Amino acid sequence: MNTQDTIISYAKKTIAEEARAIAHLEELIDEEFSNAVESILHSKGRVIITGIGKSAIIASKIVATMNSTGTPAVFMHAADAIHGDLGNILEDDVVICISKSGNTPEIKVLVPLIKSFKNTLIGITSNKESFLGTEADYVLHAFVEKEACPNNLAPTTSTTAQLVMGDAVAVCLLYLQGFSSRDFAKYHPGGALGKKLYLRVSDITSRNEKPEVSPSSNINEVIVEMTEKRLGATAVTENGTIVGIITDGDLRRMLTTNTSSFEGLTAKDIMSPNPKRINNEAMAVDALEQLEGNSITQLLAEENGKYAGFIHIHDLMREGIL
């Protein structure tokens, strides 16, 4: 077997072994899991998640998932906890302790201290008969038969199982708390996904120039307005109502069709009537859909039937929506 075949073989074997272990976790979800989730749901405090070694890294990721889905959580390294960080734990907090064996020295020191504080303790472990498994108020059984590592030493399958169990807890809490897509956007305002859920057309048009001419404006006035406002287009309005649009393309067509003289031409003569438009309070992602659906690069926005500004596809690209 050549090197490439060996690599592919081991990769597939690793994925298959971890997939089997994760599939088995479904059989381990029971009433104790449900009770553990309810203890978090009804708690007035936060979730403190702790672990040692690779389990600590998994704990940190679960904390991030919970915080982004509406469950306040704090990471506390098990080694640091017994050297001062126990002060992170408040009276109403629920503590989740993660350990494959459940018998590491740090865990054996930490668990009795947590229990002395009277906080609810949830253990995530592969060994229900371990110190952590017997001392925790609730045990989430993240059992794995063996690691994907051929020496059965490097945490691979076990940490994957811990992560999946933590995700299961976080998602259950998300459902029970009625956490919506708009809630998600509130916690992710800087990301593209969040912007798709909260960014409105008005957030963009308010930052753009607002080129505008009347139907009777002469060609010089149209060109000056488009040049000064630098959007490559201008709205044509009458008493604040949109009646047309003039783009760079309209000007180029004017140049090719009126080769003799432009004197006497007005905005009304070259505008495109009834242009595509969108409500200023619509979501920016809806503007993107309309732009792409009509193969155009800009939309006029209106509010209460009046011209409100421009939104350009470049605006959406800058926001990371496209």
Rank of each mutant, 00 (worst) to 15 (best):
T50V: 06
L197C: 01
V95D: 00
S60W: 09
L197N: 01
D167E: 09
T125M: 06
K229H: 10
N152L: 10
N208L: 04
A301I: 00
I311M: 08
I22L: 10
P155V: 04
V201H: 12
H141E: 09
F131E: 07
N294W: 11
A235E: 05
G133M: 03
I313M: 08
G191Y: 10
N220H: 10
V171Q: 13
E303I: 01
L199C: 03
Y10V: 03
D286N: 01
S126M: 10
E303T: 01
D85S: 12
F262A: 15
N152V: 06
R252I: 14
Q177V: 02
I96D: 05
L163Y: 04
A185R: 00
L121C: 00
Y198K: 15
I89P: 01
A79N: 11
N127M: 13
Q162D: 06
D286V: 00
N35D: 14
G293R: 11
N2F: 11
F310T: 01
G240L: 11
K12G: 01
D248K: 12
M76A: 06
L174T: 07
T160G: 03
F33G: 00
I114A: 00
D5K: 15
T237I: 01
K146S: 13
Y307C: 04
S9T: 03
S55A: 02
Q177T: 07
H314E: 13
A79F: 07
G244K: 04
N280L: 09
V144C: 07
K195M: 05
V236M: 05
E289W: 10
G240P: 05
K13L: 13
A282T: 00
G305P: 05
L265A: 03
T125N: 09
L299F: 04
A148N: 07
E106L: 08
I29Y: 07
L251A: 03
V139S: 12
N218G: 01
L173F: 15
K61Y: 08
I122E: 04
I62P: 02
I204C: 03
A81H: 10
E129N: 10
S295R: 14
V94G: 06
D5A: 15
I107N: 06
T69W: 03
I57K: 06
A185L: 03
A19W: 08
Q177S: 15
G293Y: 06
S202G: 02
E129D: 06
A267E: 11
T160I: 03
A81T: 04
E225P: 02
Y175S: 15
H188P: 07
S206V: 04
E135H: 07
R46I: 01
D248L: 09
P72W: 12
E91P: 01
K54N: 10
G249K: 09
A19I: 14
C97N: 11
K13P: 09
I7L: 11
E303Y: 14
L132A: 02
P189V: 04
S116H: 08
L174D: 00
G190W: 04
T266L: 15
S126C: 12
H141Y: 14
L251F: 05
P150R: 14
A161L: 13
L300S: 09
I278T: 00
L176Y: 07
I49Q: 03
E27V: 00
T69C: 07
A287V: 02
N103L: 08
N304E: 11
H24C: 13
A235Q: 05
L153P: 01
T71G: 05
E292M: 07
R277W: 10
I98F: 04
G305A: 02
Q4L: 15
P105L: 15
